[in-house]
Design a protein around this nucleic acid. Structure first.
Length: 228
DNA sequence: GCCCAGGGGGCTC
DNA sequence: GAGCCCCATGGG
């Protein structure tokens, strides 16, 4: 799939869903917190957790660091893995406070490819979370890949589903213009189609906007590894 | 009441 | 370095 093919998919999704207006968040710190909490969990539950944190004045790096683990755990309980996520939130806040005086603007002032490597070194932050933070909180032109991206492009016959994260990210970034708004909307649209039509165990193809170009289910998983 | 969602860490060999 | 288990809630 070349640049035009990718943009065609983008247009098909956009026509179906319209603008998705990501990322909901009053502050960039709230967006970061959401990026960590949304790991493996529906956004609905993240909203509850963020409301809990906000209600207790914990949507602030210093306040969050100072609060006892038990309080954070209770607040983020709806997002599953709440003990792990409490550790992850604190690990990020610790890094932010120690390296940037708790100031996200200062952090994002750093050249983003360098910052990306740095954040990947923070405990609890993997590539998807780091790219989400950079794109949606920092407005940096890095493409976010998730399980839906892998699954959908596998079903389009472009790659095997177990493709490496960095490889698929590079696939998009090598072909698409370096455009924050495009990356923002594209990932949000992929999440939309994935959520509605592309669940792993019970896909509901129905009126999926990509049905015309999809290899699933008739074509199985497509032709893994074949470059289209 | 069971099964599934699905990112990241950590362990194994 | 690939494979596997752990985390542990809530919706269908």
């Amino acid at each position: 799939m070349d640049k035009e093919g990718l943009l065609q998919v983008y247009r098909m999704l956009y026509q179906h869903f319209g603008p998705r207006n990501w990322w909901p968040g009053e502050t960039s710190f709230e967006v970061v917190v959401g990026a960590i909490l949304t790991q493996s969990v529906a956004w609905r539950n993240v909203e509850k957790a963020i409301a809990n944190l906000k209600g207790q004045g914990l949507l602030d790096p210093l306040a969050l660091l100072a609060a006892p683990d038990e309080q954070i755990e209770e607040a983020v309980r709806p997002t599953r893995y709440y003990r792990m996520k409490t550790k992850k939130l604190k690990a990020f806040c610790r890094h932010l406070v120690e390296e940037y005086d708790g100031d996200l603007a200062k952090m994002f002032a750093k050249p983003w490819p360098k910052l990306r490597e740095e954040l990947l070194g923070v405990w609890g932050l993997g590539p998807e979370t780091v790219d989400s933070i950079l794109l949606y909180a920092g407005e940096k032109p890095t493409f976010v890949v998730d399980a839906y991206t892998k699954r959908i492009w596998a079903r389009l016959g472009v790659h095997p589903e177990d493709i490496d994260y960095e490889e698929l990210r590079a696939y998009f970034m090598d072909r698409l213009p370096e455009d924050v708004a495009l990356y923002n909307e594209f990932h949000a649209l992929i999440d939309g189609v994935g959520n509605r039509y592309c669940k792993a165990k019970n896909p509901k193809c129905g009126d999926c906007p990509l049905a015309a170009i999809c290899c699933f289910p008739t074509g199985g998983e497509g032709e893994p590894g074949v470059e289209k």
